[in-house]
Design a protein around this nucleic acid. Structure first.
Lengths: 233, 233
DNA sequence: CTTGCAATCTTACATCGTAAGCCTAGAATC
DNA sequence: GATTCTAGGCTTACGATGTAAGATTGCAAG
């Protein structure tokens, strides 16, 4: 309650090290805050601190301003996260036009996965986020064009798009924050138990390693697309 | 810093309304805290408040104890979350033995999806969590047995298991916390823009509704399993 | 009774998102 | 030049959160 003692520091007590004192930092300090700068800094913060490491205070520290200043550019944290998602989606490099629609679809899938790998810590947010921004809608439209070129009719194209999205999202999530990196049980089972009671798991485990991710992803993707194309209508 | 003045209330100041005063609440209050009770209460809290709604303080309030008391049963929030995941995995009803391995695998997939639907708010945690508890390992072993019965050899079984897991996780995540329910952009694009610039999305949108989830899930699952079975070795 | 231990509670701290409002440099207007 | 306005930054404060440290209680064994 009380604690009326607060010092009423004249604001200058903190200012000197800020705008004028450190000449090296001045250039950085001068540069005005913009959405772009903030997004870039936030992305950097997430990339090496995870989503939990992104806070307005830390972001402000990185940008040389106070946390509350950010509210002049983003009305809340959710809006900032939206911007990060948008940035990630926009960074997906869709494949150029080409003769083989299946190959283009496959390449688009790889491009999405590549985005996830560029920002593994951010991806859980991207994967679950609605893509109802202009950027997101454009991306969806492009992928829909590809699925439509691969399977014939509209309905199967729509469903195929969804199924492909499921697979992509699951694969990317697993590779970026899943088994190897996600939260782990506090008391994991030990290998001896597995070797004794779970012969199949013990046999399969070697194929679960990171070295096998590429091939497994490729096989699953091919299986899904093949299955979609040959499905009875 | 000083402030030694704290009132040293004899604890009775708070106690009377607690253990003895309210006779109606006594039954609930008497029951000792156990891991099971805590997990059940936490699950209820998550089920109707989302993961963000689960806090030790709220959990304590629901159980009639203080937040810190929970630390005698779970050393930290992460351990509690682990227990929730374990509970969810254990609740998956694997299909009984039967002649058709493909059908059993499909039913196992549906059982997993059903678990996600029972606890939609919890599922994002379950899907990303390592299953390295006895319960989780048992589940994996059972599904591996099924994939092995469906595709022939060990390697393709292992990879198929992974790919199936990707699909399942993506589908369940999307259905429980994805497009319809997940975080949405602050400034969504309006329908007119979509109708004009995204003909394919406009055409596909009807098939994205919840009424179509079942069929889309079934088609994608069938496509993936078919593709796995007929893949070149 | 004393002792001891396990379960519970109290207090306190650092951190978070953010509401409310202050301050100041520069643009706009007179 | 003097005035006013305003955008963009800053300070302070509030109620949450997870949890460290330690006090307190109640019951069982000696």
């Amino acid at each position: 309650m009380g604690d009326r003692s607060s010092v009423r520091r004249t604001t200058r007590a903190h200012a000197p090290p800020g705008p004028a004192a450190a000449p090296g930092a001045q250039g950085r300090r001068r540069r005005p805050l913009t959405r772009e700068r903030i997004v870039a800094a936030a992305l950097a913060l997430v990339d090496d601190g995870g989503l939990a490491g992104l806070s307005f205070r830390r972001l402000g520290a990185k940008l040389g301003c106070e946390a509350m200043s950010l509210y002049h550019h983003f009305p809340g944290k959710q809006h900032l996260l939206d911007a990060l998602v948008d940035h990630a989606i926009a960074s997906i490099e869709m494949p150029p036009a080409g003769p083989d629609p299946v190959e283009r679809l496959v390449r688009a899938a790889y491009a999405y996965r590549a985005m996830a790998r560029r920002h593994p810590r951010l991806f859980p947010l991207v994967g679950l986020h609605r893509l109802n921004t202009p950027t997101g809608v454009r991306f969806i439209e492009a992928v829909l064009a590809l699925t439509e070129a691969v399977v014939g009719d509209r309905e199967r194209s729509a469903r195929g798009f969804r199924a492909l999205g499921y697979y992509l999202m699951g694969a990317a999530l697993d590779e970026t924050s899943g088994y190897a990196l996600g939260p782990s049980a506090a008391e994991p089972v030990d290998d001896a138990y597995i070797a004794e009671h779970c012969p199949r798991l013990a046999a399969a485990a070697p194929y679960f390693g990171q070295a096998h991710w590429d091939r497994t992803f490729a096989l699953g993707l091919a299986a899904l697309i093949d299955g979609m194309r040959s499905a009875p209508r």
